[in-house]
Design a protein around this nucleic acid. Structure first.
Lengths: 207, 207
DNA sequence: CTCTGTGAACATCTTCACAGCT
DNA sequence: AGCTGTGAAGATGTTCACAGAG
């Protein structure tokens, strides 16, 4: 498969949200123009995005809402359930462990870890925080598709090394630090302070 | 000023982190090549990024660490303090209100709001959660540069309308929904489930 | 006549490569 | 000689515009 731009994947994911909304309203078909309006883009962009994966529409009519939703879920790999482990059960980790948006998308948090004895054994909405020392062994059994990193920045790289060594191939990092991973492991980072800085720039530069 | 790509701003922000690290270690100068290695990019990219704003280096020598750090802070608008208000004091809002990374970057959370009586009056690390009904009036006095939205998706748009009407020009949205704002208002969205979906795609497509 | 699918044109971002200062 | 600054080339992403299916 040809390489697909992240911007395209991001838009597909948004289209899917709208499609699911329309699906619930009972809509049968939708045009690229409608999808574009909902998603804040152009109809040509919508069609181009979809064209990378095949042609799912009917000329003169548009796209079947349920069929397109199913197809996008398939493309994104959302037909399966994803097992997710969270490392770091501070405020950010705890918020992530209980985040509704994950479960709605079939990302199931199966375990959470922390190094702080005061946190170990506490429950996050049914998920009992485990001792980080058992992480390596547990990962074999839990076999998560994705691990979320929510530890302090200086602790992140060692955790990532352990997680990668355990064979996990997807990491979503919330610690504000750059991470090195072996080939074949995918890391994405969400840096909340960095987002604020980009916003600060936009507000400062706009004159 | 010419328009600067978001990718450039994002990298500048990362360079700044490294520069501050180097500054603490007492480094006096740094080359584009060093910065590139730290930031996972190329030296040409670093020089190009900086060149949009002027020429701060010395040929044959590199960049002065403190001078470049100061200049980037200035470019990004980080020399001032930013007053930040958070709307929504659920788990995500609470985590944001107490996030260390914000204060370190001089983003000061000055108030938090919620609609739930059970949350109003509780304290988040010194910030007392206020009644959302007083938001509009309070915004006049607080005059924040940025508002963070951490309410449920269906509540987000009405809050954004109120916030924009109060004259706030920067919004960072954590609710998984598209937002409409008047001209002159900048919104950025951090959608945690969407980040997981992009990761799921990367793991699914990589074969 | 409507709306998709897609090459071609265009715009934007990144990398190259080297002139020129120190 | 070392390293910056920057036009030019190259790669990538977006928009246009229209042929063609329904």
């Amino acid at each position: 498969m040809k390489h697909i731009a992240e911007s395209t994947v991001r838009r597909l994911s948004r289209y899917l949200r709208f499609l699911e909304g329309e699906e619930e309203l009972g809509a049968e078909t939708i045009s690229s123009d409608d999808l574009a309006t909902l998603g804040g883009t152009t109809s040509a962009q919508v069609r181009k995005d979809l064209s990378f994966f095949g042609s799912f529409g009917t000329r003169g009519r548009g796209y079947s809402v349920p069929a397109l939703a199913r197809r996008i879920r398939e493309i994104l790999g959302l037909e399966r359930e994803w097992r997710v482990v969270i490392v770091g059960a501070g405020r950010v980790g705890a918020a992530l462990a209980q985040y509704r948006g994950f479960r709605e998308r079939r990302f199931n948090v199966v375990a959470a870890y922390d190094a702080d004895p005061a946190r170990i054994g506490t429950s996050l909405n049914g998920i009992v925080v485990r001792d980080q020392r058992t992480l390596d062994a547990d990962l074999q059994a839990l076999n998560p598709g994705i691990v979320l990193i929510a530890v302090p920045p200086e602790a992140a790289q060692p955790i990532v090394d352990r997680v990668a060594r355990a064979g996990v191939r997807g990491i979503l990092n919330f610690a504000p630090t750059a991470l090195r991973v072996p080939d074949g492991v995918v890391v994405r980072s969400v840096d909340m302070a960095l987002e604020l800085e980009i916003l600060a720039y936009a507000l400062t530069a706009a004159k």
